[in-house]
């Protein structure tokens, strides 16, 4: 059983410093709801907002262009994306409500993400998952998402901001697998369990 931690809960001495650990009187405490990963001696959050970092792949929705060549992109309740034509590439032709994937090039005042390499996404299915669970959905070396995509035949694009785009294949099964990973992100042996689920359900279908 995982050791869950809550804000203000004392952690083992050997806890590694990360942004979810606060020191008080020389002792480490969690500042978030999460679990303690004993293999790595670190706190892993289970809830929380996405905080943009340079290099994050994101998916967002284009807002009505305010000026020619400048596009605001809705990424989350808190973070606004911005695409500026000419900054990284020459020009784009986006319309309001277009779905785009892009990469965070820089972050200003923690809540404005300047985006590069934007690409319009074709019509597909999009879902929202808790952003803190995205690393688990991707998996170490993309193993988790790789097997979901492979065993369902679905194209999957993941935004670190919690938006996931899917198209083709057994999309229903892919969605089910992703939701299962999101809900069971705190459990161990998950990659194997998902694999078994996918194989069993694909076999039943064919």
């Amino acid at each position: 059983m995982r050791q869950f931690v809550t804000p203000g809960e004392e952690l083992p001495k050997e806890t590694r410093r990360n942004e979810f650990v606060t020191f008080y009187s020389g002792k480490p405490y969690s500042n978030i709801l999460g679990f303690y990963n004993e293999a790595k001696n670190e706190v892993v959050p289970l809830e929380g907002m996405w905080k943009p970092q340079v290099g994050d792949s994101v998916i967002g929705v284009i807002e009505k262009p305010s000026k020619p060549g400048i596009y605001n992109v809705v990424l989350s309740d808190f973070v606004q994306g911005l695409i500026i034509a000419g900054k990284y590439e020459d020009s784009y032709d986006f319309k309001a409500n277009d779905l785009v994937e892009a990469v965070v090039a820089s972050v200003e005042r923690k809540r404005l993400a300047i985006l590069e390499r934007p690409r319009k996404l074709a019509i597909g299915h999009t879902i929202y998952v808790k952003p803190v669970r995205i690393p688990r959905i991707i998996g170490k070396g993309e193993t988790m998402i790789g097997q979901i995509s492979r065993l369902t035949g679905t194209r999957i694009i993941i935004g670190r901001n919690g938006i996931i785009w899917l198209s083709g294949g057994n999309m229903e099964l892919a969605l089910k697998a992703i939701k299962k990973v999101e809900n069971e992100a705190h459990t161990s042996g998950l990659t194997e369990r998902i694999k078994q689920m996918l194989e069993a359900e694909s076999a039943a279908r064919s």
Partner: peptide, 11 residues
């Protein structure tokens, strides 16, 4: 607040 994943010094 903790359930919302908001970072806090204490509960």
């Amino acid at each position: 607040l903790a359930n919302a994943g908001i970072k806090m010094k204490d509960l």
